[in-house]
Computed example of a mutant assay.
Amino acid sequence: MLRLLLVGEQRMFVEALSQYLCTEPDLWVADSADRADAELVERISRARPEVMVIDLAVLGDRVHEALRRLDESCPPVRIVVLASTASPELAVEAARAGTAAWLPKERGVTELVGIIRDVARGNAWYPPEVLGTVLRALRQDIRLADTRNDDPLAALSQREREVLAAMAEGKRGWQIAAELFISVQTVRKHTRGILTKLNVHSQLEAVMLARSAGSLPEPSGATVRALPRKTV
């Protein structure tokens, strides 16, 4: 019998899903939670599930970091993410973190049951609409790893290098956005990309890694242009 652990955003959803899965003769929900609380790793240790089904909504903005920590803390557990969005970028973050399956919620619980069984056998599953993007990203990661040599920043794009250089100067997100003429949301996206590609957990770690390797880029030098004065 497969031991499961469910983590969802809403208690009613978790309970309904738990009741349905328990009707399957080979599935047993050992534990469930309605949020990714600080004791989640301990709950996994107690429940000893083979598969964990987790709602993407409870992971917040740091999808890759949260899933990677779970994968590293509980390596025997296979993770299935239930996603309410078809975002290929988030699916790539999940795959990089070691997630076994990415299932859009609209696929239905019947398909979820089949995927749980498949994942427990050691297989992986991503929907066709994001699979191509995921595979291309993972192949690119392999190529970058082969050509990285001694430069830990080789995986970063030019814009990500500029954001990292500004972070090293202690600039905040809004300051970086103004300097590079991009939005604060774009700065956050580049920051997540930096942390993911450098395999670190914080901006401080990213800066320290770049400095220790002597490869911290110079800032772009862009400055906020002053508005012309009005003439009377």
Rank of each mutant, 00 (worst) to 15 (best):
A137M: 06
A137C: 10
A137E: 14
R139N: 13
Q140P: 00
D141S: 04
I142A: 05
I142P: 01
L144S: 08
R148G: 02
R148C: 10
D150L: 13
D151F: 14
D151M: 13
P152Q: 05
L153N: 04
L153M: 14
L156S: 09
L156E: 03
Q158Y: 14
R159I: 02
E160M: 14
E160V: 01
E160P: 06
E160I: 05
R161G: 13
V163L: 03
M167L: 15
M167P: 01
A168K: 01
E169A: 05
E169G: 08
K171I: 05
K171G: 02
G173T: 07
G173A: 07
G173I: 04
G173R: 03
W174A: 13
Q175S: 13
Q175M: 12
Q175V: 09
A177Y: 01
L180G: 03
F181W: 10
S183R: 00
V184W: 05
Q185V: 12
T186K: 05
R188Y: 05
K189F: 07
R192W: 06
R192C: 04
R192I: 09
G193V: 02
G193R: 06
L195K: 09
T196R: 05
N199H: 15
N199S: 11
S202E: 06
S202Y: 09
S202M: 05
Q203L: 14
Q203D: 14
L204C: 11
V207G: 03
M208T: 12
R211I: 10
A213M: 11
